[in-house]
Design a protein around this nucleic acid. Structure first.
Lengths: 264, 264
DNA sequence: TTTGGCATATAACAATTGTTACTCTGAGTG
DNA sequence: CACTCAGAGTAACAATTGTTATATGCCAAA
């Protein structure tokens, strides 16, 4: 009953022979950033050729491992994180459907953080060769992915501002607003909310808060009738006010259509 | 009496006609990352052609402004920061001598943060054209700058981990250790310490702490005989222990010579 | 169906960090 | 030289957040 990617069947895209790739999250995402031709769209569809399902809390790429493939998330929530010696975990980024991680790290040879799933996910491993071929033959796609990378960096900076100078309530509100925009771009959120299949402990490791304080903070948001959540379903009751609390300025996500046309 | 860049005179490099650029901070920095030929080194020297002195606390590039030039720091401390509506400032990165900021942002068209000086600085503005010519003609330099960019990103992630899951003392220790390594690479630090010409308020905006708590934290480090500071001069009395407190792992800075040969 | 375990929820208390207010010093300036 | 002011230093108190403990609910495995 989860939204999106209804064409998943047996670990393969049922429609992989056809040309209708417009619903692929990475296509939806890049189409906001650059104009895409049918050929571009089809090429992006190839990225998910080796899609497979991964259980929640599974490491995909370990810190320090040599990196030869990129990881494309098609469904579910994945993260990049670092571990301290104390066992504390800092989540550095969320990877939601349409996010491609991390083509560039090949230059450094290894990654300084670990890629893992938070929820059950559909992910595709993309060999460097396949990716570089596409980048070469599809300059629009190449430009789109470079833009996406810059947006990811801006998002990291935003998270640093979050951690450095926002209160727990503001931080939580900001994260919920950011996810609302990012998930809506790829069709995994409506205007009212989205499925947030992660624990309060995970939220704590994201925001630099204890799980208890995450719980307190969510309660405040609930009591103020800003959000509701039943199970994994998050409903945003008052988005404007939530954004106001968070001082959320979505510009850094480049999510408005003003920056590019949609594909024909 | 400040160390490094003794050749500064009248806003120009006195030796700009010669070929001895090895002492330039950006040359020292990149030489750790990639092999550099004499030609590469000379080309890097050109970057500081339009060097000028800038007073402390001067904005160089404003948030939202169209970006047509990169900024190269030759001496002093500069930063990237974001402002909240409340007036709170989050410092996102330090730009120390040898750091080049931000060639890539041209793709996005505008920057999401402001570049500013903390101390009096010598900086050079590098027009996009000059930079792209050099990148084209000197692949080693291009590769070095790409590596430097990746290192900068890793540093930002590290700062996020800092803010998210380290105590004030650990955060401060980590910052001091990081600067020790970065400044030593470009010849602005000895093994014992370095000049740190920034206020406790600035440190607070860096670490997400109040200025009062910064003061407390520095006092603890002093009382434990880990550091000393008289005026702007920071002396590190016990680097191993400071690194231990910070859980500092310098790998992300790629500062050890094991990754590349020095130029002939 | 029962059970075990994980996630949520909440309370009481502790620790960290922020805020306000004040003093002191030193560098720059008239 | 006196004056000003920014920055460092400190204390007292307040607010936020973390820790520990315990209870509850719910889903999945036996």
């Amino acid at each position: 009953m989860s939204s999106g990617l209804e064409q998943v069947s047996g670990g393969r895209l049922a429609s992989s022979g056809g040309s209708r790739h417009h619903h692929h999250p990475i296509v939806r995402k890049l189409a906001r950033l650059v104009p895409l031709t049918e050929a571009d769209t089809a090429a992006l569809g190839q990225l998910s050729a080796s899609m497979r399902q991964v259980a929640a809390h599974t490491d995909l790429v370990h810190e320090g491992a040599p990196l030869t493939e990129a990881v494309l998330v098609l469904q579910g929530f994945a993260i990049r994180y670092q571990l301290r010696d104390t066992g504390a975990r800092q989540i550095l980024a969320y990877l939601v459907p349409g996010d491609l991680c991390d083509p560039d790290a090949a230059l450094l040879g290894e990654l300084d953080c670990t890629i893992s799933t938070l929820s059950a996910c559909f992910v595709a491993r993309v060999p460097q060769g396949v990716l570089s071929d596409i980048l070469e033959q599809h300059p629009n796609v190449a430009r789109g992915l470079r833009l996406a990378k810059l947006i990811e960096e801006a998002t990291t900076r935003c998270w640093l501002t979050n951690a450095g100078c926002r209160s727990a309530l503001e931080r939580m509100a900001h994260l919920l607003c950011e996810l609302q925009v990012r998930l809506q771009v790829v069709g995994f959120a409506t205007e009212d909310g989205y499925e947030l299949p992660i624990t309060q402990h995970d939220l704590g490791d994201t925001l630099g808060l204890s799980n208890v304080h995450v719980n307190r903070t969510l309660r405040v948001l609930r009591e103020q009738r800003l959000i509701e959540h039943h199970g994994k379903q998050l409903t945003i009751l008052d988005l404007p006010r939530l954004q106001e609390i968070a001082e959320f300025k979505p510009g850094y996500l480049r999510s408005t259509a003003s920056h590019a046309r949609l594909p024909l």
